[in-house]
Amino acid sequence: MEAFTTHTGRAVPLRRSNVDTDQIIPAHWLKKVTRDGFEDGLFEAWRKDSSFVLNQPAYQGATVLVAGPDFGTGSSREHAVWALQNFGFKAVISSRFADIFRGNSLKNGLLTVVLEQPVVDALWEIAESDPTAEITVDLERRQVRATTPDGAALTADFELDENSRWRLLNGLDDISLTLQNEADIASYEATRPAFKPRTITA
């Protein structure tokens, strides 16, 4: 996984709630067997509308998505995370994320940042009043920083558990970490009851 320490970039205001993973990447894209090449499928249906925010020239090249509550609901498809990353997003900010999407994002180095809705509102205003305004997402300090249209500094702390933060900062691979405890797995396996189901009988 790619490490995430701090990122500064322009933001896209996506004023929609309940953005489900079918919207992020429609099902027909899921037939691909790779982790890349999903950028053209990102928000495919909405991008057919020329006024959709991602189509506006001012937001081209933006790397931080600021979305409404309950982002990433629905299907467990990790392709949603890959599509956002393939398109160029480094971080997504929302007041609430669906659990599976959040887990998938953190395993791929796409930082999902939970901020209170009033802060999200303020970030929307910043990105809408000046699409060139930059937002900094600082994982080391667990802080989002920006400048409001009237020139005031916006600083918002966010929470992320220490273990997830450590893995992201160092770009650590979960499987390698788990396999360091292989002996624990083997000893657990030795104590499993005989009645537990098996898909293949020896």
């Binding site: 498809r77 990790e78 392709h79 599976i100 395993k107 979960d174 788990t178």
Partner: peptide, 9 residues
């Protein structure tokens, strides 16, 4: 339900 990284895990 899990994502593909967790499937691999």
């Amino acid at each position: 339900g899990i994502g593909t990284s967790q499937v691999e895990h």
